[in-house]
Design a protein around this nucleic acid. Structure first.
Ligand code: ZN
Ligand code: ZN
Ligand code: ZN
Ligand code: ZN
Lengths: 130, 130
DNA sequence: GTGGATTTGACAACCGTTCCCAGGCTTCCT
DNA sequence: AGGAAGCCTGGGAACGGTTGTCAAATCCAC
C-alpha cells in the first residue's frame, strides 16, 4: 500500500489558517476572497482543491447552502449537527443521541441498511433577533 | 392584494401527471426526459418553471442530491422527512415527533428563534441489498 | 370568436465547480 | 549543498445545472 504524500505548501497553510479563525460556514469563493484581501493570494482552483482535500480528510465539515453552493467550516471531529444563524452565519455544533438512535431505528424498521443521515437546524440567533 | 391566476396548460398537466406516478425523487432533467419518451414533449425551461411553482405551492417536496442537483417528489402535505434508497431511489416518508421537539428545544436553548430544520436519511433498501 | 394577459420554448447567459497542463516548489537522496 | 522526481499551483477553458430573455403560441373570460 502506498502512503499518501502530502506537501505543506504556503497555500495549504493559508487555507487552513483562514478556516481556523472562522466561526461560520464559508464558501470556497468566500475563502478565496478573504485570502486575497489578506494579501495571501491563492488561486481559486487551489482553494477548491485544498478545501476538498480537507473535507475528504475529515478536517472540515461541508454542507450545502440553500442556493446549492458548498460551505466549509472547521469542526470538532465526532459526529454532530449544526445550528446555523441564517442572518450572521454564527454556528453552534450540537449533538443529539436521541436523534441518532431514532434515525437508525426508523431505517432498520423499513429494511434499510448502510444508513447515513443529514440534519441541520436553521434559525435566527439572539444577537440577530435583537 | 392581487389574486394568482393559474392556467391549466397541457404542459402543466403533463408534469403533474409524471409526478403522480413516480415513487422516487427525480430531477428536472429526469422528468423532462420521461415526458419526452412518453411523447408529451415539454420544453426544459417549462419543466423547471412548473416544478418550482409546484414546490413553492407546497405540492411537491424538493431536496438536493449529493451532486447538488435538485430532486422533486410528490409527497403528503404535512411536515415529514425522507428515507431514501441511494441505489434505486425508493423513498419512504417518515415522521418523528421526538426529532421535531428535540430540534426546537435545542435551538431555543441556544437562543435561536424562527427555527427550521432539514433531515434526510439515506441507505440501501432491502431489495437493493438483496 | 376575440382580446389580452399568461405561458411556452429555443437559446443565451450565469454561476459554482472541475479539468487541463505547463511551470514552480517540496522533498528526499547523495 | 546540489539535483532529480513528482506533487502542487494557477489561469483559463470546459462543464452541468439552472435561470433569464422575448417573440410566438395558448388559454380563458367576455
Ligand atoms: Zn446571527
Ligand atoms: Zn446525526
Ligand atoms: Zn433500493
Ligand atoms: Zn422535521
Amino acid at each position: 500500500m502506498t502512503s499518501t504524500p502530502v506537501r505543506t505548501t504556503r497555500q495549504r497553510r493559508a487555507v487552513s489558517a483562514i478556516l481556523a479563525e472562522l466561526d461560520a460556514f464559508a464558501s470556497a469563493q468566500d475563502i478565496h476572497e478573504k485570502l486575497r484581501s489578506n494579501g495571501d493570494a491563492v488561486g481559486l482552483s487551489t482553494v477548491y482543491r485544498n478545501l476538498q482535500a480537507l473535507s475528504d480528510a475529515g478536517e472540515v465539515d461541508a454542507i450545502r447552502g440553500d442556493d446549492g453552493e458548498v460551505l466549509y467550516r472547521r469542526c470538532s471531529s465526532g459526529h454532530h449537527h449544526h445550528l446555523v444563524c441564517r442572518t450572521c452565519g454564527r454556528t453552534v455544533e450540537v449533538e443529539g443521541p436521541t436523534v441518532e438512535s431514532w434515525a437508525d431505528r426508523t431505517a432498520r424498521e423499513h429494511g434499510f441498511v448502510d444508513v447515513e443521515h443529514t440534519l441541520e437546524i436553521f434559525g435566527t440567533c439572539d444577537t440577530c433577533a435583537h
